[in-house]
């Protein structure tokens, strides 16, 4: 193989190798900003020892927040979520605010795109839509000790009567 053909072969590989990731990244940016599929960000800090006095975590639970919208304030701790059952009508969008009272936890809600970390001292906010009636289990997906695997709960989307 001559040196010229080595360079030519290199170039024929290099140019698409630059174009491909650039195109993919453009699509991701469009999905994040244009379609609203974005990640958790900075939502403020708190003292995990003072949760009982820190809104909104002084009142864990499910609260109406508008037409077809609900707000869930949730505290994660070894080895349970409070609340561990969230009841909303099917077709609702639920906005979650979650924090931890002890160590790092996580939450993934099956059947939705909700998947976040819960870090003590930080507030994680995300929303999920529960279109179909039924149960959506959520589980802790970050190792949190010897009973990590029993830490779970469920969202119950109730059919409209």
């Amino acid at each position: 193989m001559s040196k010229g053909s080595v360079y030519k072969a290199e170039l024929m590989w290099i140019l698409p190798s630059i174009a491909l990731p650039v195109i993919m990244l453009g699509l991701l940016l469009w999905a994040a900003i244009g379609r609203g599929h974005d990640l958790p960000g900075v939502e403020g800090t708190l003292d995990p020892a003072q949760l009982a006095k820190t809104p909104p975590f002084d009142k864990p639970g499910t609260f109406p927040a508008g037409p077809n919208r609900y707000q869930v304030n949730m505290v994660a701790g070894i080895w349970s979520f409070t609340p561990n059952a969230v009841r909303v009508p099917a077709g609702s969008t639920v906005e979650f605010a979650v924090t931890s009272r002890d160590i790092v936890h996580g939450i993934i809600i099956k059947g939705t795109s909700a998947n976040v970390m819960v870090v003590p001292g930080q507030v994680t906010r995300f929303s999920a839509r529960f279109e179909k009636p039924g149960e959506y289990p959520f589980v802790c997906h970050e190792y949190c000790g010897v009973a990590h695997h029993i830490m779970f709960g469920k969202v119950i989307a109730e059919a409209k009567k």
Partner: peptide, 22 residues
């Protein structure tokens, strides 16, 4: 999926990770 880190910095790291693909 961590809280407490701004989305813009996360996206910058996404961009640089794609650069490592090269």
């Amino acid at each position: 999926t961590d809280p407490g880190i701004a989305q813009a910095w996360k996206f910058m790291h996404a961009f640089l990770t794609f650069c490592v693909f090269f």
